[in-house]
Amino acid sequence: MERVLASEKKFVDKLKTYLLFAGPTTLVFATVIILPFLFGIYLTFTNWDGLSKAYVFVSFSNYQKVLQDAAFWTSFLRTVKYVFYTVVLVNSLGFALAYALTGNKVLGQNLLRTGFFVPNLIGGIILGLVWRFIFSNVLVYLGRTLNIGFLSYSWLANPTKALWTLVIVSVWQYSGYMMIIFIAGLSNIPRELIEAATIDGATGFQRLRTIILPLMVPAFIVTVFLTIQRGFMVYDVNLALTNGGPFKTTELISMFVYEKAFLAQQYGVGQAQAFLLFVLVAAISLTQVYFTKKLEVEA
C-alpha cells in the first residue's frame, strides 16, 4: 500500500503531498464548516446584535432565554408534530409504493417509478409555490363547485388546517425518494427465501410480516433517519407555501430560528437556538438509529 504514495520519508515531502491532494478540501472544510461551527458556539455566549462592532460576553444567559422562551418551544413542538406525521406517512407510503412496484409484474413499472420520484427533482421553493396555487385556487374551486364542505375555503388561511398542507406536500415530495431506497432494499432480498416460504404455505401477508419487513430494517433505518433530518430542517416549503401563517400557526423551528437571527437581529439568542436545535435533532436521530438497529436480523 505504501509503495505508491507514501514513499515520502521526510516531513516536508509529506506536507507537500498532503497540500497537493488534500489542501483545497482542508481549506474549505476548515473555513466553511469548522470555523463557523466553533465561532457559532462562541456567539451563543455573546449579545451580538449584528451591527455593533463590540459585543459583551453574557455567559449562559442566551441559553437561559431560549429555555424560557415559550414561543421557541411552541414552534419546536409544532415541528415535532409535523415530523411525526411526515415520518409515518412518508415511510409507509414509500414502502407501499416500492412493494407494489417490485417483483410483481406491473405494466409501465419504470414510468410509475419515475412519476412518483419527479417531485424530488424540483426545489422546495418551487414545490411550495406550485402547491400554494393548488391549495388556494384549485382545491377551493373543486370544493365550491362539487359542494365539498372542507375544501370550499383555503386551508392555507385556516389555523387548524394549514399545518396539514405542509405535511401533505412533504409526503408527496419525499415518498418517491424513500420509495427508491426501499426498491434497492427489496431487490436485495434473496429470492429463495421468499420461494421457500411460499412452498411452506405462507400467505402474502405472512411473507411480508415475517420475512420482508424484518429484512428491510436497514432500509428503514436510513429512510427514517433522512425523514427526521429533513423534517426538522425544512425551510423552503415552509417559506413558499405558508410563510409561517396564518397567525404563525405553521412557523416551524427552522423558520423561527431564521427570524430570530436575521429579522429580530438577536444573533446570540438565534445561534443558541440553532445550536440547541442541532443537539436535540442529533440526539433524536441517534436514538432512532440505536433502537432500530436492535431490530436488525441476518438474512
Binding site: 472544510f29 461551527f37 457559532g40 456567539l43 451580538w48 430560528v257 440553532a274 442541532f278 442529533a282 436521530s285
Partner: peptide, 21 residues
C-alpha cells in the same frame, strides 16, 4: 473522522456565524 462527523451538522446550525464571518 471530522468530515464524516460534520455530516450530522445541519446547515441551520452554522448559517448565522457563516454570514457573520
Amino acid at each position: 473522522f471530522a468530515m464524516v462527523a460534520s455530516m450530522l451538522i445541519p446547515f441551520q446550525a452554522i448559517m448565522i456565524p457563516l454570514v457573520r464571518i
